[in-house]
Design a protein around this nucleic acid. Structure first.
Lengths: 137, 137
DNA sequence: ATACATGCAAACAATTTGCATATTA
DNA sequence: TAATATGCAAATTGTTTGCATGTAT
């Protein structure tokens, strides 16, 4: 997703366009990987007056609601990335740097056949490891 | 896994066999589903003198190390279940009661082909929803 | 002008640690 | 008895909330 697009979504839903929101969204677009609230705080700490965690979290949940970002939970903390707008897919996630790679495959069709009597609400498929840059050569 | 087996693993690895450990392991075997530290505390609170969270956690991590239990992280908290000793598989997990169903399928073979240059360390595939008992009829 | 956004400080919940005591082998 | 297990109490970490103030519309 592009920054402009995210800002449109924000405005269309009646929210205000602030510098901090723009900065957070820009950061997501620039980084294009999973990052934590702490990462955002670090990255923007010198900018203007910095950002408090409460503001970060409030915005993260807002952006999540608006489908501007997506989230996952790894090692006890939430990580967020700019939303991928292509068709449904999954991610490889680098444990070192958070970089993602698209996994263009979803096994849910086969899996649903194995679960006839349950009501499926969601699923999580993630592959973890080291990306080219982070793996020891 | 059976209770006796878990106790053998514990003893063979030089740990002591205490009533609390037996109770926790029994609970895991009886419940046969994902439960939290809090659930364990509730379940065993009237037993003898109860259990403190520090003891619960210390034992959970010990059992995890010994592969007596397996864990997953859902909604910000760790959940644990008695280890499944069959071949590699995944789980459907009921969001209401923690009951699991085996998903006898793993898509990693196809996925690995899509990730040629990375070093894969692990993966997570879980399906969430409501089991027969918990889904609204 | 008014509603929404932010910061501060404090609350929270799950988990972890240090240390003294109790218990198993 | 010697080593490990446990409880207590307090620290830690990630996240959330109440309230007063600041800012975009």
């Amino acid at each position: 997703m592009k920054v402009e697009e995210a800002i449109q979504i924000l405005k269309n839903d009646g929210h205000k366009y602030t510098n901090k929101r723009r900065d957070i969204i820009s950061l997501f677009v620039d980084e294009d990987k999973y990052i934590t609230a702490k990462y955002i705080q670090e990255a923007l700490k010198d900018d203007y007056t910095g950002l408090s965690f409460d503001t970060i979290y409030r915005n993260l949940y807002l952006f999540k609601d608006l489908n501007i970002i997506e989230s996952t939970e790894i090692d006890g903390e939430m990580k967020f990335r700019i939303a991928c707008q292509s068709h449904h897919h999954h991610h490889f996630i680098c444990e070192s740097c958070g970089t993602t790679k698209v996994i263009d495959f979803c096994p849910m069709d086969s899996i649903k056949q194995q679960l006839p009597n349950v009501e499926i609400a969601s699923h999580k498929l993630e592959v973890y490891g080291k990306c080219e840059q982070c793996k020891t050569v």
